[in-house]
């Protein structure tokens, strides 16, 4: 039995390779304190946020602004905390997210079907090409009046624009992901006797994961903006509004701090999804496997 051979001996970075040989990255975190934790904290960004908040706190008074129109940061914070505690904001947020998840799920499923069609048929590819180029400059929200005409004031109209917001960018990403799977990997899978669906599940899908995650990210961003805009402009939907409707209502009653609180909630949910969900997925999969785009 031979020992692992330091193959980098004649390579460009012998030291680096030797290091790798001694301590392979085993993909599992070592327990205990992580020395890089402090280095990873975005101190500069925290400082910017603190500065912005401080400016917001003093600016209304400095400008002699009407507090009814431009409340201070602490006022907004108080209203926001109250809104969370009473469950009011959470109820509205929940309604928004429920519709969003449903719409996105439908859009994503449709996107996969379209991508597979585009992968295997010329007609599918042309269709995807034309549709994505055509709808790229058209914001999904612009279709909302049409949706209202067709489906009325209800969840169906919302789902229509949400599907529209997600399906095209997602289908394009998934298609690109599938189309750029390394040929060698496909040959390896076929060599092991895989074909058809098992080949797609074992090789194509994981190999296309970086593109799929990117697609989900874009789809989420489009869907979230589209939904809030739809709720804002068209008010109550099916008797129950989401966060957009919450903001609209608060403006109507001139509860300006609550308008700000609604906006802050939208930002927070956006950040939470981006960092809590997408970054985590990326770090556990694509980055860990060295497959970043």
């Amino acid at each position: 039995m031979v020992a692992p051979h330091p193959s980098g001996a004649a390579g460009a970075e012998p030291a680096a390779r030797a290091e790798r040989l001694e301590r392979p990255e085993v993909g599992r975190r070592v327990p205990g304190p992580r020395p890089d934790l402090w280095a990873r904290l975005p101190l500069g960004k925290v400082a910017v946020v603190a500065l912005l908040l401080a400016a917001w706190e003093v600016l209304p008074a400095a400008l002699h602004a009407n507090p009814l129109l431009f409340p201070r940061a602490t006022t907004v914070l108080r209203v926001w905390v109250r809104g969370i505690e009473s469950g009011e904001i959470l109820t509205y947020a929940e309604r928004s997210l429920a519709v969003l998840v449903l719409g996105m799920a439908l859009g994503v499923v449709g996107a996969f079907l379209l991508a597979v069609l585009a992968l295997f048929t010329r007609a599918g590819r042309d269709f995807l090409d034309v549709m994505t180029s055509m709808f790229n400059p058209l914001p999904a929200i612009a279709l909302f009046p049409l949706a209202l005409l067709w489906f009325g004031l209800g969840i169906k109209s919302l789902l229509f624009v949400l599907i529209h917001a997600t399906i095209w960018p997602m289908a394009l990403s998934v298609f690109t992901g599938f189309a750029t799977v390394p040929r060698t990997l496909v040959l390896v899978g076929r060599n092991f006797g895989l074909r058809g669906w098992p080949l797609a599940a074992a090789i194509y899908f994981p190999a296309a994961l970086p593109a799929i995650v990117t697609g989900l990210r874009i789809a989420w961003a489009f869907a979230w903006r589209t939904l809030i805009a739809a709720e804002l402009v068209f008010g109550v939907i099916g008797g129950q509004g989401g966060l957009g409707w919450y903001i609209y209502l608060k403006r109507y009653y001139l509860e300006t701090p609550a308008v700000f609180a609604g906006l802050a909630t939208i930002v927070l949910i956006g950040l939470l999804v981006e960092h809590g969900i997408f970054r985590t997925i990326e770090e556990r999969t694509v980055r860990r496997w060295g497959m970043s785009l």
């Binding site: 790798r20 392979p24 993909g27």
Partner: peptide
């Protein structure tokens, strides 16, 4: 073990050298 990679079972390919 036969190819001399004992101890690297849990390593991901991108952390390995070309010959490994």
């Amino acid at each position: 073990r036969l190819v001399g990679l004992e101890g690297f079972e849990r390593a991901y390919p991108h952390t390995l050298s070309g010959s490994m």
